[in-house]
Computed example of a mutant assay.
Amino acid sequence: MSQAPIITPITLRGAAGKLAAWEVEPPAGTERRGTALLVPGFTGSKEDFEEMLPLLAAAGYRAVAYDQRGQWESDGPDEVSGYTLVDFVGDLLGVVDQISPTEPIHLVGHSFGGYVSRVAVIERPQRFRSFTLLASGPSSVADINFPPPLLVAQAVEAGGQEVIWEQMDAVMAQADQQPAPQRREFLRERILRTKKANIIGILTCMAEPPVKDPAVLRDSGVPLLVAYGDTADLWAPEVHERFAKQLNAKTAVYHGSGHVPNEDVPAQVSADLVAFWKEQA
């Protein structure tokens, strides 16, 4: 019987210092099908994919996730100027070159991680075998259930990371989705340890669509998948569906899931990714 895949902490290099990451290798004897990179979103981290990474590895994929600059356990500058979309994209492309110097990889971007990822795909499409937008809609300024990003940035500037935590905690309480005490403490600590400049920088990035014309991403030649939950996501299902049509992308819908299907239904998301990736073999 083959051993279950094990998550291994690794350190990657970013332009602003070390990037904390997790890596899972396929079990011995499993056919190796390639490498997958999963990129977390706003206030997220590699832990957002904790349940998915071993499942992807069991299917034959070396799976890697990392904290973006200034998130959780990764280094990052203290100045907001060090958190432009160019900075995030540069880190992502550097990570790709570190984990797979010659072979193209499968890329998954969750929420803001999808913003960063779509720019990377446009800049260097030859480095990607596929790209999945996971709960990552077209923009954060229209057709989204989120306050104007620059207004949130002003609140964080005045009140610090605690402002974001209080908002998140209130939303979970109103939705009757309060996590277990240990999980709640992790979520709080992660936000408080994420650099204030990271949070304000990402919110500033979110004030503009990452790609103004979907045709640019569509015409990259990289196979695309738009995957999303149909309940209480930041973007309504019809927004995701319209975006997918503009991109000529396949879709995967998670009924009853919200903005984090990677945590709500990790087995289903993983199975859909594997099926999509096998089509690109």
Results as ranks from 00 to 15, higher is better:
215 A>P: 13
279 E>V: 06
17 G>P: 07
224 L>F: 01
5 P>E: 11
58 A>C: 08
131 F>L: 09
248 N>L: 09
145 N>I: 13
182 Q>G: 09
69 R>C: 03
167 Q>I: 13
35 T>N: 08
206 M>P: 00
129 R>D: 05
204 T>A: 11
202 I>K: 12
64 V>Y: 03
228 Y>F: 07
63 A>P: 14
209 P>D: 14
110 H>F: 14
261 P>N: 03
94 G>L: 07
150 L>D: 07
36 A>H: 02
164 I>M: 15
143 D>A: 14
277 W>Y: 10
102 T>Y: 09
201 G>L: 06
71 Q>V: 12
262 N>H: 05
132 T>H: 12
194 T>K: 06
83 Y>Q: 13
62 R>N: 10
65 A>V: 02
154 Q>E: 15
232 A>Y: 10
139 S>D: 15
276 F>N: 03
124 R>S: 15
246 Q>T: 04
76 G>H: 05
196 K>P: 10
65 A>F: 03
232 A>M: 13
92 L>W: 13
12 L>C: 13
74 S>I: 01
21 A>V: 13
109 G>Y: 00
64 V>C: 00
101 P>C: 13
129 R>E: 01
229 G>A: 06
263 E>I: 14
43 T>Q: 03
22 W>S: 13
121 V>N: 12
73 E>Q: 00
280 Q>G: 05
185 E>A: 05
100 S>Q: 00
259 H>W: 03
16 A>G: 04
49 F>Y: 02
29 G>D: 07
60 G>V: 02
94 G>V: 08
36 A>V: 07
136 S>K: 03
276 F>C: 01
164 I>S: 11
182 Q>T: 14
228 Y>L: 05
120 A>W: 04
97 D>K: 09
243 F>H: 14
231 T>E: 08
158 A>Y: 12
228 Y>K: 09
181 P>G: 07
5 P>N: 10
255 H>R: 15
20 A>Y: 11
185 E>T: 03
266 P>C: 04
209 P>Q: 08
133 L>H: 14
35 T>A: 06
79 E>N: 00
156 V>R: 04
273 L>C: 08
263 E>M: 15
118 R>C: 06
238 E>Y: 08
77 P>F: 10
131 F>S: 11
40 P>H: 12
151 L>W: 05
173 A>V: 00
39 V>R: 04
137 G>S: 05
18 K>Q: 06
86 V>L: 00
268 Q>V: 03
58 A>V: 04
155 A>G: 13
80 V>M: 04
126 Q>P: 12
152 V>P: 00
192 L>Q: 14
80 V>A: 12
118 R>L: 00
10 I>G: 13
120 A>D: 04
263 E>G: 09
168 M>D: 03
275 A>Q: 15
56 L>Q: 09
227 A>M: 03
93 L>C: 07
124 R>D: 15
115 Y>C: 01
121 V>P: 08
258 G>L: 06
262 N>T: 02
107 L>P: 07
170 A>T: 15
104 P>L: 02
146 F>S: 05
166 E>R: 02
17 G>S: 09
144 I>N: 07
165 W>V: 10
141 V>A: 09
160 G>R: 03
8 T>Q: 10
244 A>K: 13
173 A>S: 03
224 L>V: 07
194 T>Q: 10
11 T>Y: 01
276 F>K: 01
21 A>K: 04
28 A>C: 04
243 F>S: 07
85 L>Q: 06
85 L>S: 08
115 Y>E: 04
276 F>T: 02
33 R>V: 11
13 R>H: 12
240 H>F: 08
86 V>C: 10
